[in-house]
């Protein structure tokens, strides 16, 4: 995203006597702000749906814990843990619904992220993650 900021931006700031950091802060980061937010959202979208790495360490307990240090559960972990055990249609349907919800959330986050990223880099020149 930062590479997508035109060099004229940098040169203008440097020409006004800004230091390297001031150039970055004022001319580059501010110019590419929406794209940076988009990039952060992309990362968040990836993390939201991460399954295995979370399942192995989160504890998998079906409660909303008060403490951050207590075991919890994520949507992806529920699906991973219980899908092959789901014997009845209702159970299976419920798990697929969790999947639908997860899908909806990540699609929303990703769609927003793409719009933000494209606003700076353009659809075609966008930086791959």
């Amino acid at each position: 995203m930062i590479l997508a900021v035109p060099n004229a931006q940098r040169e203008a700031a440097l020409g006004l006597g800004a230091t390297r950091w001031e150039t970055t802060r004022i001319a580059v980061l501010r110019y590419g702000r929406s794209g940076l937010i988009g990039a952060v959202l992309l990362g968040l979208g990836r993390a939201l749906g991460e399954t295995m790495a979370v399942t192995m360490v989160i504890g998998n307990r079906a409660e909303i814990a008060v403490s951050l240090f207590a075991p919890g559960y994520t949507m992806a972990s529920v699906i991973a843990n219980e899908f092959t055990e789901a014997t009845s249609d209702l159970y299976l349907g419920a798990l697929i619904e969790v999947g639908l919800l997860l899908f909806a959330v990540t699609v929303a986050v990703n769609a927003l992220a793409r719009v933000l990223v494209w606003s700076v880099g353009g659809a075609v020149r966008e930086v791959r993650e």
């Binding site: 990836r46 399954t51 699906i79 999947g99 997860l102 899908f103 699609v107 659809a123």
Partner: peptide, 18 residues
């Protein structure tokens, strides 16, 4: 297509498993 492909790229793999 570009937009849909990029969004699909962000869909969790477990959902694709379902």
């Amino acid at each position: 297509i570009r937009f849909v492909a990029d969004v699909l790229n962000g869909v969790p793999s477990i959902v694709i498993g379902i």
